[in-house]
Design a protein around this nucleic acid. Structure first.
Lengths: 157, 157
DNA sequence: GGCCATTAGTTTCAAATGAAACTATATTCG
DNA sequence: CGAATATAGTTTCATTTGAAACTAATGGCC
């Protein structure tokens, strides 16, 4: 049986080495750096940009589709879409088959912003990843995929 | 010179492969899974737990020290400490040399909670990391360290 | 056809958050 | 010393967020 001191040492939590904490700090730093770009220049909030990011890739999605792809909840999506529509950066069209659904798309104005922000975002990702050698990038990518799968299971249980 | 189509393809942003997005989703999933544990059982908010986590490791820190170590801002720390003190989970003592400063520490009650939560948190970290082989863990740890350093530079610029 | 359960999306309301102003104490420097 | 500046921490206020209630429409299913 371990001594009291040993049990205590075992239970010790050092934030700097605790993975969830490190992930959170890293994620926030990166997101903030990118958000600074589009929020300064275009007055976009993070949820607004996320919605634009998926609509830029695929037009005609419903709000629910957007929520699924961005891991946002439907309230967030509703509000972000509302803001984008008010600013004429996105538009809603009625779905012909289902009266509850709106089909969403960027307007020309929205697309113009998208086309400016995407290279900025990719550039920052690139700068960020430039800390890793090509082989390390592949490793990191694979490890992230494994952990994402695992986290998904965790969430369910 | 690339064709217009090629430029467009190059500028394409696919959220599922965009690292900042993947980091954010992963970090949130993991944090939420852990937060569920301590929030359900002890009614602790995330900021409250973070403060407890550093005070559990080191007693007698000032609020400012806590802010530094947790990457929280001073307002968040102030409010979390306030809540912990109200619940008699932490206590403030005056600093003898500087009247502005409070020295913070967990009470016995706070320590008891800390001693229960730490193993839960470490266990979940372990479950999470069990998706990786030992060698992969070492890799991931090293890559995270590199990226954290890089993100730190990004934040400054 | 007409009730019942479901789903899409919005609104409401309370709680969490953050920026900026504020209080109180310390420090610097003429 | 004492005015000016800086720092620790709190409060205020406006904004953001999220959970739950709500509205409107659809899809069973008898």
């Amino acid at each position: 049986m371990p001594s009291s001191a040993a049990r205590k040492a075992e239970a010790r939590l050092e934030l700097e080495h605790f993975l969830p904490y490190r992930l959170s700090v890293l994620s926030n730093r990166v997101s903030d750096a990118i958000a600074r770009q589009y929020s300064d220049r275009f007055g976009l909030s993070i949820p607004e940009w996320r919605v634009m990011a998926v609509l830029g890739g695929t037009s005609g999605l419903s709000a629910r589709d957007v929520a699924e792809r961005t891991a946002m909840d439907k309230v967030q999506v509703s509000r972000a879409v509302e803001a984008l529509v008010r600013a004429r950066r996105a538009a809603r069209a009625e779905d012909r088959l289902d009266g509850r659904v709106s089909r969403l798309a960027l307007t020309a104005k929205g697309r113009a912003i998208y086309d400016e922000v995407v290279p900025l975002a990719l550039h920052l990702e690139e700068v960020f990843l430039s800390a890793l050698a090509p082989e390390e990038r592949r490793q990191f990518d694979a490890l992230m995929a494994k952990l994402a799968r695992q986290a998904h299971l965790l969430g369910a249980g």
